[in-house]
């Protein structure tokens, strides 16, 4: 293992950037979960499938756009992202209506029921789109890479996803902590009875909050499919990581989620270079668990007394 200082710098930069793409997808996934799990205490094991729903929506828009002509292939993504959000959002609302709202008082059971939902969704994707992995067309302005020095090579699509992540994160933070609606959400989660007493429609708050979390997962899917191909079971690969991100960050804290997604993605990506991907993943997970054993409430403690 002989690396010169310059090599190490380049490796850190490249792996660091690879880590940033991973960080973006992980954070987008985790944001949705931070809303659903952190605020509502619902454990949505089908979160990965909502992401895949967004990814397939993007793929469908791309396929439809390809029929319209070259201009559509260039810019379909601008339409695909809102549609990915919308499809996951609406489906999330439906699921809340049919399933989740009956289970609010049994958090562990939401875990089991949504696992059943995940199985159904996976098979649904397989029946509709086939078992093969698909990827949408990449618009030409997202192809290629930026090379500031000969040793560093940074893909454009990675940067686009970063930008998307920043926008979505700021949007979620604004919505949850700066808007009237966010205030209603937080008040409902803090005390359902009091919120209902002051005239908040807590049922709608629940439904929209759950749907919003799912919608953000849909955006994560749109981002995911730009850097990697999508299959019916792609969501399962991410679900463990995503839950760990939220728990590690301290459930209920958005800034904690951002920091923990960053640490996990970067740690894993840099270790990957030295240890290979499977050992890197094992090491990262073990470190997270070890830290969680010492600080079960996660990095950022929520100040709510329970």
């Amino acid at each position: 293992m002989d690396y010169s200082m310059q090599d190490l710098m380049a490796i850190t930069a490249m792996q660091g950037f690879a880590g940033l793409s991973f960080f973006s997808v992980l954070l987008l996934m985790a944001l949705g979960l931070a809303i659903i799990f952190g605020q509502m205490r619902v454990i949505n094991m089908a979160h990965g499938e909502f992401m895949v729903l967004g990814a397939y929506t993007t793929y469908m828009v791309s396929t439809l756009a390809a029929g319209l002509g070259p201009w559509a292939t260039e810019y379909y993504i601008l339409l695909a992202i809102p549609l990915a959000f919308l499809s996951a959002f609406l489906f999330g609302m439906l699921i809340e209506l049919l399933m989740i709202r009956h289970l609010y008082h049994r958090p562990l059971d939401t875990l089991l029921a949504t696992w059943g939902l995940a199985l159904i969704m996976q098979q649904g994707f397989r029946s509709i789109f086939g078992a093969r992995e698909v990827s949408p067309n990449t618009p030409s302005w997202l192809e290629g890479s930026w090379r500031p020095t000969p040793m560093i090579d940074i893909p454009i699509n990675g940067m686009a996803i970063m930008a998307l992540t920043v926008i979505v994160t700021l949007g979620v933070v604004w919505l949850m902590y700066r808007s009237r609606w966010g205030l209603r959400v937080r008040s409902t989660m803090a005390s359902r009875e009091m919120s209902a007493a002051v005239g908040i429609n807590t049922r709608w708050v629940d439904r929209l909050t759950f749907a919003l979390g799912c919608g953000v997962a849909g955006i994560a899917g749109a981002a995911f499919t730009m850097i990697s191909s999508t299959g019916p079971t792609s969501g399962t690969l991410y679900i463990v990581d995503t839950f760990l991100v939220v728990v590690f960050g301290g459930a209920g804290s958005i800034s904690g989620t951002v920091v923990s997604a960053f640490l996990i993605a970067q740690g894993q990506s840099i270790l990957e270079f030295f240890l290979g991907s499977s050992m890197a993943k094992v090491t990262t997970l073990l470190v997270i668990i070890a830290i969680l054993m010492m600080r079960p409430e996660g990095l950022f403690k929520s100040k709510v007394r329970r």
Partner: peptide
């Protein structure tokens, strides 16, 4: 005092680690 949901998620992570190790 790790319990409930957190326990479930950590045990799931452990089995993930074991599988990755065995496969790797």
């Amino acid at each position: 005092r790790v319990s409930g949901v957190f326990f479930a998620i950590i045990t799931q992570a452990m089995v993930t680690i074991a599988t990755i190790l065995v496969i790797g």
